[in-house]
Amino acid sequence: MTGFVIEQPGILTTLQDAGRFGAGRYGLTQGGAADSFAYQVADLLLQQQPSCQLEITLGGLQLQVLQPMVIAVTGAELPLWCNEKPLGWWRSHQLKAGQRLRFGMARSGVRSYLAVAGGIHLPKVLGSHSTVLREAIGGIDGKAIKAGQFLPVKARQLPYCLALPKTSWPDYAAPLTLRLVPGFQAELFSAAQWQQLTEQSLTVSQAADRMGYRLQAERPLEMDAVSLWSEGTVYGAVQCPPDGYPIVLLNDRQTLGGYPKPGAVVALDAARLSQRRAGQVLQFSRLDPAKLAAVRQQLQHDWQQLRLELYCC
């Protein structure tokens, strides 16, 4: 088994998979790829089950390939070169031993994904490769990728490369609507608060990372003093602290929280949020829980359609 060597780790590169589930009782969060859509498409382009991938934040990664392999790259739009020859995005590529892969800095979006046919082979921790830096778990010693590290790959060759049409690429610069499903604390928020929450425009603040995104607004919510017990948090939960600026909890969130929560954002929208930068505009819309089944059906339909759109390149 061989693989590739990290020459430059970039701003922040971590190993991620679909996530670590069932470990919340130990105080460990789920982790996993922040943009689940881009992550899943990378494996789809390689015709394989969910694998261990590199999540590249903002860019700067450079690595050397030690054996022929097939890769797929998705996510944030950034320049990509193989031996200084530009490569395309949202598609797979055949690489040769000795070639050097270099990622520039993202022009749109935040996180990119590099998957390898056959997968990166490292030991799992509690059933997952996902790196959570705060908990120092997963990946390699629970830390971000470093220069000089060797990543083993059990390479699998493919007879052709696949690509996703540009018409199906996500637009990470577009305004985003987050569908908010009311939760059991929804009644703690008045009709006026719900109206303000769902009608005003918000922007992503500088306090935005894999743990959660704090949102800013021209007028913060006026929060009543409410004493709540800390309780388990879920992916996409929206917390409203006393300052009135909502926080959307993401993959590396804390497992317990006590701020009032009007509800949780649909998972696909939370994944889209992870690709937004400080200053980008978004809005909440209230989604009736009775419509969730229709949302799931539409998502399944969209995935089937996306599979049909892939083409050989």
Results as ranks from 00 to 15, higher is better:
128 S>W: 08
291 K>T: 14
278 A>W: 10
178 L>C: 03
291 K>E: 15
160 Y>D: 12
249 L>I: 09
225 A>D: 09
227 S>A: 15
180 L>S: 05
234 V>S: 15
275 Q>V: 10
20 R>K: 12
221 L>Y: 01
55 E>N: 07
112 S>G: 13
202 L>C: 08
259 Y>L: 08
58 L>I: 12
175 P>Y: 07
246 P>H: 11
206 Q>P: 02
49 Q>V: 05
192 A>S: 08
204 V>G: 02
72 A>I: 10
210 R>I: 03
145 I>H: 01
277 R>M: 10
213 Y>M: 05
274 S>C: 02
64 Q>T: 10
205 S>L: 03
223 M>E: 04
43 D>K: 06
276 R>F: 08
264 A>N: 13
81 W>M: 06
62 Q>P: 01
58 L>V: 13
49 Q>A: 12
106 A>W: 02
305 Q>T: 14
256 L>G: 12
262 P>F: 06
271 A>D: 12
192 A>T: 05
227 S>R: 14
301 H>Q: 15
252 D>C: 10
179 R>W: 01
99 Q>T: 09
122 L>V: 13
33 A>Y: 00
308 L>G: 14
27 G>Y: 02
38 A>C: 13
297 Q>T: 11
160 Y>C: 13
39 Y>S: 01
78 L>R: 02
14 T>L: 08
1 M>F: 11
292 L>D: 07
70 V>Q: 03
202 L>D: 02
290 A>N: 14
80 L>R: 07
12 L>N: 00
27 G>T: 02
205 S>K: 00
286 R>L: 15
202 L>K: 02
28 L>C: 05
117 A>D: 11
78 L>E: 01
191 A>C: 08
267 A>I: 02
260 P>W: 05
2 T>A: 15
7 E>A: 01
270 A>I: 08
274 S>P: 01
49 Q>S: 13
62 Q>C: 10
98 G>H: 14
187 E>A: 12
12 L>I: 12
245 Y>S: 10
125 V>Y: 11
16 Q>D: 10
221 L>P: 01
294 A>D: 15
